[in-house]
Design a protein around this nucleic acid. Structure first.
Lengths: 109, 109
DNA sequence: CCCATATTTAACCATCTGGTTGACGAACAT
DNA sequence: ATGTTCGTCAACCAGATGGTTAAATATGGG
């Protein structure tokens, strides 16, 4: 059903990949620049970027020789929604959903 | 840094474990009852429960022969906070919410 | 064309994962 | 005491994961 959650959560389960996402939060980056602060090969980083891309968490666009990596935070939405379902512990009934909705609605911007 | 995020996200990256959490949202359950709806061995479910326990997402308490599993939704807080750092995706829209609802419904076909 | 830069691919390796079956221990019931 | 139910443990397996190095594939610049 939601293979997306599988791949998103799996992608987030690695500290290197979370750090990459954090870096991309500041700005788009070329693959080489993403790799620079890590003490691992460029090939390893390239693999991590593939995993992040397949999870939809980043997108990559090639301009010339350089492939730019861009954060795609929308991909976190489903996962975030799933997790927030557990924030309202207690019942799983519609009341909880309504409270959830009510608490989210005003923040529409 | 936070090994916790590793284990929490890794625990969430499996559909069986997410379904177990969903079941526990309704009520505490014995291990055997957790395993019942799944088409896999009790031993396999037992392993999944260990992973969820180590991630802090559930707790287990033995009363007599029966080991009860209890959801610990607080463990999701750190992960949730981390994700909200990417909060460019503004809150939850109804579309996403409907998907959440659907995921909470008992499986059909 | 030749060379350097940017990135991926290929082959390999060690370890982790998710599943199996079967044996085991612990707690109850009769 | 014997057996049954509950759950874990041990050994095993196939496949995924995270890393390596070395070769290959663009692309851009003298």
């Amino acid at each position: 059903m939601s293979e997306t959650l599988d791949t998103v959560f799996a992608a987030l389960a690695d500290p290197t990949r979370r750090e990459i996402l954090r870096m991309l939060l500041e700005d788009d980056m070329a693959v080489t620049d993403v790799a620079e602060p890590f003490e691992m090969s460029l090939a390893a980083i390239s693999k991590h970027l593939v995993i992040l891309t397949r999870a939809g968490l980043i997108s990559q666009e090639k301009r010339g020789r350089v492939k730019w990596c861009k954060l795609e935070p929308d991909a976190l939405r489903d996962a975030s929604v799933w997790m927030q379902g557990f924030g309202q512990f207690e019942p799983v009934n519609l009341d909880a959903f309504e409270r959830f909705l009510a608490s989210e609605m005003p923040k529409q911007d």
